[in-house]
Design a protein around this nucleic acid. Structure first.
Lengths: 111, 111
DNA sequence: GAGTGTGCTATTAAAATAATAGCGAAGAAT
DNA sequence: ATTCTTCGCTATTATTTTAATAGCACACTC
């Protein structure tokens, strides 16, 4: 019944060295994790339902992702909704270039 | 039978604008996608079995991921194994800081 | 106390992933 | 020419994850 949330330190398989990176990849490799973080960009603060609408996913999945992201201190729930933590914001800033890169990727993928 | 591979242009749901980024997030949000790319870092060229061993995943899953990554021009299969394309390499370079960030993340997550 | 909005759970169905065995082609070795 | 490897990959079945939908419990307003 207990769910395994990927955190640096122990869990993820096949990770002799550089475990923190592996844990991150496994965390972000779960469906909609990247998307949720993205929807909270630019200091957006969304409540559960708005986040649900933004991502267009099932509430159970969103809740699972949110639990993982809160557990790993990337997201927090405040008075007026969910928002990225300081860490989460830092991560998003690293994610941003990725999003830009995708534009070029789209072009070279067209023909 | 046909599998839906997320590419910029049409597919992913909930993507009025910035669809390329959404497609990328959906592609990378599939399990082990980030890991596969990571294992091919630094111009590594691994054959199917070595990649299998490196990632420690099921061959069917690896093959699915590889198909997606090849289809989207991030990975290619050459004479002596799989390797990142030029685009894939560019993406990896953006992924690198992420991997480093994870180290700090690990620290602040300890206590 | 009826209505509204909140975060979230329950339930069931569908899909993705995991684990394992093994195939068919291609080259090397015998 | 036949066995032996090695290769990329598929088939099969079990397990886990995600999807879709309905609705609950709490708080606050009116």
């Amino acid at each position: 019944m207990t769910k395994r949330i990927p955190k640096p330190g122990k869990p993820v398989r096949g990770s002799r060295s550089g475990r923190a990176g592996m844990a991150l990849f496994e965390l972000l490799g779960r469906r909609w994790a990247l998307r949720v973080i993205w929807e909270l960009r630019e200091h957006r603060r969304l409540n559960f339902r708005d986040l649900l609408a933004a991502c267009e996913i099932a509430p159970s999945v969103l809740n699972t992702r949110l639990t993982e992201l809160r557990e790993t201190k990337l997201v927090e729930l405040g008075e007026s909704g969910y928002a990225l933590t300081k860490q989460g914001t830092a991560l998003l800033h690293l994610l941003m270039p990725l999003h830009d890169w995708a534009e070029d990727w789209a072009k070279t993928l067209k023909p």
